[in-house]
Design a protein around this nucleic acid. Structure first.
Length: 454
DNA sequence: TTTTGAGTTGTTCGA
DNA sequence: GTCGAACAACTCAAA
């Protein structure tokens, strides 16, 4: 009996229940399908990281990994035919596009008399499992978190001691080569793969976890786990991380961050249209800036040339690392929506293309949260002041100097306020493209417009 | 059943 | 300089 193990967002062998399920049924052919629809439109960091991660997985499989290109709807049934598989094993995908794809694949396989067996998910608790007493989903984080804790999750699963790769079959059908790794001139990526994920997790747990509650908002420190990319590609399962967390303050706060990922996955699964559409429909009527001037503002934002140091540092970190510190994500998002009056979807799309940890649920709902149309129960009038935020969370200005060479001559917190000509402009740093105080008032006025009359 | 209090991430203003 | 109030309105669970 031969099973096809279809890897997607779970590029690891440890704590992978779908792998165990496949092994239980006999010999295994591991497959990854590179879908041009996703791969060719992804940013360079995402593509390079995907290639690196697949290389690592191929090594871990002892060279057994089969790579194919195309629409999985065609490729998976085709490979099933080639190897005469009796089942296809994978982890369930709860993202709207992935779930739809899996339904299509399942239907095609059904015609071949082969089941698509979904075992596990990328989450500790699968979307839809945590619900209110009346069965409806939560729309507020805190009660979700409480119920999620009560629901609980299973412990990590050990991989089979000896994985029965179907080596002869694999050699016969052959694998296509991995895509060329894009040239990432000047970019700095974390190392990819399961071993790197476990190593990073260990490093974080030993160096920063205990102080996480105090230091997590500091973009100038290496105080966050940066596990988001590893979770996105499934190079580690969140169960493995949760199993290492105890009751210390830092542990508790970090567990809550992991629960945000689960919450947003649940919200998106229950409201699939919110991948592109407003969770709070009142915001459909929000007035945005459009036209050439708005387009110029958007370009300045993407390039890190808004004249607001913390915003520009964040956007340049994205260019360099394919990653931004969470606190700074909120600041740059708030700036796009509330200072530039651009629609959150524009920013969300940019993030999806250039973040190598880009996760549909966390990204879209993080943006909706910032825009005020998401799950936030807090008031709309919360508008981040980029300068105040910068001074509070990067008090020495070190984060600014790291990512904005034009401001490296400024000492200490002065880097956050390069408003004098001598401070920035003569070194090539742009003047502010908008006045924050003015745009804050404008933003509040526009929120008034969509307010429901009492 | 109804009421009540609290809710990730903030800013500004005026006493 | 510090501190509290004001900035609305809806979800959720406990009382």
């Amino acid at each position: 009996m031969t099973s096809l193990l279809w890897f997607r967002r779970d590029l690891r062998l440890g704590d992978n229940p779908a792998l165990n399920a496949a092994c239980d049924a006999g010999q295994v052919v591991p497959l990854f399908v590179i879908d041009p629809q996703f791969f060719d439109t992804a940013g360079a960091a995402m593509r390079a990281y995907q290639v690196d991660s697949l290389s690592a997985l191929a090594r871990a499989c002892g060279g057994a990994l089969v790579i194919r290109y195309g629409d999985p709807r065609d490729v998976v049934p085709q490979v099933v035919k080639e190897i005469a598989a009796t089942a296809v094993h994978c982890a369930a995908d709860y993202e709207p596009a992935g779930a739809a794809r899996d339904m299509d694949v399942e239907a095609r396989l059904y015609e071949q008399g082969v089941p698509l067996v979904r075992t596990g998910s990328p989450y500790a608790v699968a979307p839809g499992r945590v619900a209110k007493a009346d069965g409806t989903p939560y729309r507020v984080y805190s009660p979700f978190y409480k119920a999620w804790l009560v629901h609980g999750w299973r412990g990590p699963v050990n991989p089979p001691a000896d994985i029965p790769w179907a080596e002869e079959l694999i050699a016969r059908i052959g694998s296509e080569p991995l895509p060329a790794r894009p040239d990432l001139e000047g970019m700095v990526l974390l190392p990819a793969g399961e071993a790197a994920a476990l190593q990073r997790w260990k490093h974080f747990a030993e160096t920063a976890l205990m102080d996480y509650a105090d230091n997590r908002d500091r973009p100038d420190f290496d105080s966050t786990s940066q596990m988001s990319g590893y979770l996105r590609f499934g190079e580690i399962h969140v169960r493995t991380m949760l199993a290492d967390l105890g009751e210390f303050k830092g542990h508790e706060v970090y567990r809550k961050e992991l629960a945000w990922r689960e919450f947003y996955a649940d919200v998106l699964w229950n409201n699939p249209a919110t991948e592109h559409d407003y969770l709070d429909q009142r915001f459909v009527g929000m007035r945005y800036n459009t036209g050439p001037a708005a387009q110029e503002h958007f370009t300045a934002w993407t390039q890190g040339r808004t004249g607001y140091p913390i915003v520009d540092a964040g956007m340049r970190q994205l260019q360099r690392e394919g990653w931004i510190h969470n606190r700074v994500r909120m600041i740059v998002a708030s700036f796009l929506v509330k200072d530039l009056h651009l629609e959150w979807t524009q920013g969300a799309e940019w993030f999806m293309r250039y973040l190598r940890d880009a996760d549909v649920a966390s990204n879209q709902h993080g943006w909706q949260w910032t825009a005020g149309c998401g799950t936030d129960a807090a008031p709309y009038f919360r508008v981040f002041n980029p300068t105040t935020q910068g001074l509070r969370f990067d008090p020495e200005g070190a984060y600014i100097r790291e990512y904005i060479p034009e401001l490296r001559h400024l000492r200490g917190p002065a880097a956050h306020e390069p408003w004098d000509e001598l401070d920035g402009y003569k070194h090539g740093y742009p003047t502010r493209i908008v006045d924050h105080a003015t745009e804050r008032d404008e933003s509040l006025a526009r929120y008034q417009e969509i307010k429901v009359a009492p």
